[in-house]
Every structure is written in C-alpha cells, then in structure tokens.
Design a protein around this nucleic acid. Structure first.
Lengths: 329, 329
DNA sequence: CTGAAAGCGCTTACAG
DNA sequence: CTGAAAGCGCTTACAG
C-alpha cells in the first residue's frame, strides 16, 4: 500500500506539503502542487483515512440505530439521512436493533468510532441516556422524549393521533378501538395518549375494551384481528398505531368475510408504500419520513460542529390521507 | 478522553500490559491484571478503536452496497449479513446505491476504511471490477457473474426462471410473457435467459411481443400493466422478474377489472413479505435471502482471513411458492 | 511475565 | 510557501 511518504518522496516535497495539497488547506506553490498531483496519479495513491481519523479525532461516520430494518417506514428515513450524510461527507454505520435495547450501541460513541448517533427508536433505559446525551451528539428521530432534554425531530404524535381519532368520530363511528404500538416506546405511548384525549373529549369510552396492545408488527395485527373476531360486540372502527398492524388486521378480517370499510373502518399510521397498494387503499396518517431523516442528519451535523448545543425539538407536519378503508356511518 | 496511558499510570504498569489485558493476548500476572481492570473500571475507560485500527491495519468494518434499501428483499439479506457480522465482531457500513453505479464505492476499499465489501447488486462496469476483485475481499450476493472469477452466493437464477416458466407452461397457459428486470443487471439477464430457454424448449414464441423490459420497480409494473391493457392480443400469463413489478401489474390490471388469475395469471420472483399479504396471494419464486446474507458474510470473512482465495460460487436452493395468482387453463 | 520503544498514516502548530 | 517533528491511541516484536 502506498502511503503519503511514498508520494512525498516521488514528488520531492515533504509529507506536510502532500497533505496540504490533498486536503486543500494552506498555501502550496503551483509548481509543488503539480508535482504532488503527478505523484499521486502515478502511484495511484488514495489517502488512508484511518490515519486522518486518528490525527483529527473524528471519523466522519455516524451510527444510525433502526428498530427494524425490514420496515420500509424506517428505510425511507434512512434515505433522508443518507442523502444529507452523503453531501456532507459522512458515512453511515448501520445497527438493526430489532429486539435489543438501544443502550447496547452507546459504546460506539465511547470508542470514538463514531462522531454522532441518530436513533430511529427510543427503546432504551432513560437512565443510560441521561449519562450520554449531553456528552455526545445524539439526535432522536420520529419520537419526542418528554423527560429528556435531547434534540428530536418528529411530528407531534399526540396531535396526529387526535386528528385520526377525531376523523373517525366525525365519520359517525360509534365503537372505536385503538390498537397500540409497543407501549415501551414513546411513540406507542403518545399515539395512545392522543387517542385517549380525543375519545374523552367526546365522552367516548376509554377502557380495556377499547384499547388493545400491539407491538407494531404485522403479526400482532393478525393476532389482534383474531381477537376482534372473537368479540361479542365488535368495533365499527379500528385505529391502528401503524400501517403494518392495520394491514395485518384488514387481511385477517377480510379472510373472515368482514367488509372493509362497510363493516369495519380501519385507519393506519405512517403511510408506508404498501398502504396505497393493498385493497382497499388504507386511510392513514402520513409522516414526512424522508424529510425527518434529512432534518435529523442536518441537526446532528450542527451539533457535531458545535453550532448548536442547546435543546432543540423540531416538529414537522404530517397529514391524514383518506383512502378506501374508512367510510362514514 | 482517557487513554491507555492514563490507565497504565493509574495501574502502575506499562501500556503494553494494559493492552495485553484488554485484548487477552500474552500472559499477564494475576496481580497486574487486577490492577489494570481496576484502573479501567475507575477511569471508565473504553479503548479507542481507531488507534487499534491504524496499528493493525484492519477496521473490522465491511461495506454493504444495497441497490435499494427500501426494498424489503434486500433488507432481509442485510439482516442475514448483520447476524453473522455481529457474531464475528464486524460492523456494517451501509451504502444505498440507488441509481448510482457500484463503482463509486470501491474507494472505500482503497482508503482502507473497510476490510471487505458485499455487493447485493452488480450495477457496475465489469472493467473496474476486474482491477479490484482479486486485490480486495469482495463477495457478490444474489447474482452470479459469468465473466468474472468473483466469489458469489446466489440461487441459480437461470434454473429458477426455467422452473417458473415451466410451471406456467404446465398450467396450460398459451400466451406467456416475461417482464424483465433491469437488463444492465446480471440478475435481470439471467432470469430472462431462463425464460427464453424454457419457452424455446416448448416451441413457444420468444419475440419482442413476449418480452417487455422493466426495471424491478413497482412503478415499472404500473407502466407495463398499462401497456398490456393496450395490447390487442393480451397474454394469459405474466412472469415478472420480481415481486414488486408483479404487484404493480396486478394492481393496475385489477383496477381495470381484469381478474387475476382467471383472466391473467401472474407470477413474481423473490417472495417478499408483501407477496402473501396482497390479494390474490402472489405465486412467486422464493429465494432464501436471509441465508444468502449469512453465507455472503461468512464467505467474506473467510476471504478476509485468507482461508479462501480461490474462486467460489455457492449456489443455494430456492423454490416456487404457489398461491392464488395463477391458475391452470 | 514485563516494559521501552517503534510504528501504523496521517495533520498541523511551529519556525523559518 | 515549506519542512522537520510531534503526536493522535493503540499493538507488538524485541530484549530482558
């Protein structure tokens, strides 16, 4: 492997000059610049970035922790992150947390392999977080954390869930239930809260009957649909905390000859690609996930560059998208 | 940031001894080991891996180039890759190539940030590849390359496409067309070849009429379905080179009151999660994508460790999964 | 079993 | 504009 010394020797300059040419810092005479570039060309030299990383104490790498890489909702955010990262010269280290706690990934920060971290989930013990978040650049995307002063990018999930619930109530739906996401995620809790707020506001019942706990997965949608089928007094409308569950529910209900939306209206959340492909098209709440990813990366870079250190919660707007899975009663 | 010197001083040993304890190499007396571990504990020390990387000239990081991160087919392979990577202490740098040529990512290798590379696509100029593949550890997953001696993991795409075509012919389908993937990908070409082989074997026509070029995207499925609708002599069966296109085709055809499978049978390829969710369930050819990912990572590690340097093409078995989108004539 | 020292490949204050 | 030299944080042959 050719290194900077080889280039310096061939170009008959010091390694300092080679470095200056290659990083475009400091002044170098035209003559020496040419000698260096020629040598680089001739030797087919590529700088070893590990050397630079050690010297500069920065890796230009960020860690993105995704709760489920096979969920397209997150991969859209990933794309937003990557688009900004690419422009700013950062690379992305990927962690697919799945069932694991996010806490496991903080060591990437300690070990300094990584300049910052974007969490697309907050499955973590808040205690750990508290020790970390003000020492290292961390941005939480798509979930806001009330108890922590940590920078976040998200929609307002409470308001969004209120909007969805309000929509169902206004359709004249009498028996509305909410299928929650994982309740150990802030996201799941907030959407539940929005549902409860609006239900109470209209004096609709908020009970064990009207709230069924899911975990955001298609499979939990299947399971819950079977439970709903077994209910004596079935709901007229179901608000699922994400599209995957909504789609799982619709599939099973339809297999049992329940008509969507005539018998039961179903609303999802996220507006994944699939939502418009399935039949009937799924009414859902759309988050600007690509944009969330972009903003998260931009904010992280600001923090890394120390332009911002204070708390900052950016709220983006989503919107309800009405398709064929809901109907007025 | 505390470093190895701080630990050495507190433990009253040399940095060499600290390193030996932390890497479990060489012998260290029980007494010194304890002193080191106590100091590590007290200082809350985490080794900086960049230092190690520079010294050892290995990053324990591999680059995975994905053609489309939002396509669940690839994220399943990613999971397989990550599961092995995690066990073996490797981290994953992610690149979402999208429309870009893979060639752009080879510089990650030159700059030695990365110990190896797994390509889930082969959108690359073979010329570039030739210079690279025998110098650096690279594994191609899910596509076999005939012209290059590069290690690959894949199913036999030609045989698989033959199986699918044979299946349609045996259903008694008279007018069968193939919607290809991107024909600048080996994958697309091989599936087309399998289709052609089997069609010719049965003296079915292989013409411009029976082959429509797509690009693996849902959108190209939409577009091609509209084209099919405009045909005077519509096919009785469509073999799409992947599920996304098949699903796009089914959606548009159904919107125009074409019954699937009665009017037109449709087969996809890949068996993405969606294939069993949509209605009718999509008949498709299933690749063991998680396993492909695992094997790709295992092979890459073997190559990095220099256990294998010779060409090695691993073929895994897939299978046709019959659902409701096909019927015999 | 242990430590002093070299060295991985860079960048950058410093002096000229 | 330029170079010699220090140093980022490690690991490891070498000598004892």
């Amino acid at each position: 492997m050719t290194n900077i010394k080889d280039v310096a020797e061939l170009a008959e300059v010091s390694t300092a000059t080679v470095s200056r040419v290659l990083t475009n810092t400091g002044n170098v005479s035209i003559k020496n610049r040419k000698k260096v570039l020629d040598a680089v060309e001739k030797l087919n030299y590529y700088p070893n970035s590990i050397g630079r990383q050690l010297r500069k104490m920065e890796t230009k790498t960020i860690l993105v922790v995704v709760p489920d890489i096979t969920n397209p909702f997150f991969t859209n955010m990933l794309r937003g992150i990557e688009s900004i990262a690419g422009k700013k010269g950062y690379q992305i280290l990927l962690a697919d947390a799945q069932k694991k706690k996010v806490d496991n990934y903080f060591k990437y920060l300690y070990e300094r392999q990584v300049d910052g971290m974007i969490l697309l989930t907050s499955k973590l013990s808040l205690r750990t977080m508290k020790d970390i978040y003000d020492k290292y650049p961390i941005v939480l995307a798509c979930e806001t954390s009330t108890s922590l002063d940590i920078p976040t990018i998200s929609i307002n999930n409470v308001e969004a869930a209120e909007t969805v619930t309000d929509f169902l109530i206004n359709l004249g739906q009498k028996k509305i239930i909410h299928v929650t996401g994982s309740l150990d995620s802030i996201l799941g809790k907030k959407r539940l809260l929005g549902f409860e707020n609006k239900m109470r506001q209209y004096n609709y019942p908020v009970t064990k009957e009207t709230i069924i706990e899911g975990d955001f997965s298609l499979e939990s949608g299947y399971k819950i649909a079977r439970h709903i089928l077994s209910m004596k007094d079935r709901p007229t409308a179901i608000f699922a905390a994400n599209d995957e569950m909504a789609i799982g529910i619709i599939k099973v209900l339809r297999e049992h000859k329940i008509n969507i939306p005539t018998d039961i209206s179903v609303v999802g959340f996220d507006n994944i690609k699939l939502a418009e492909i399935i039949e009937p098209g799924l009414t859902t709440y759309s988050q600007p996930n690509y944009e969330i990813g972009e903003k998260a990366m931009e904010l992280l870079i600001e923090i890394i560059d120390k332009k911002v250190m204070e708390r900052k919660n950016i709220i983006l707007n989503g919107k309800l998208i009405e398709r064929k899975s809901t109907i007025s009663k």
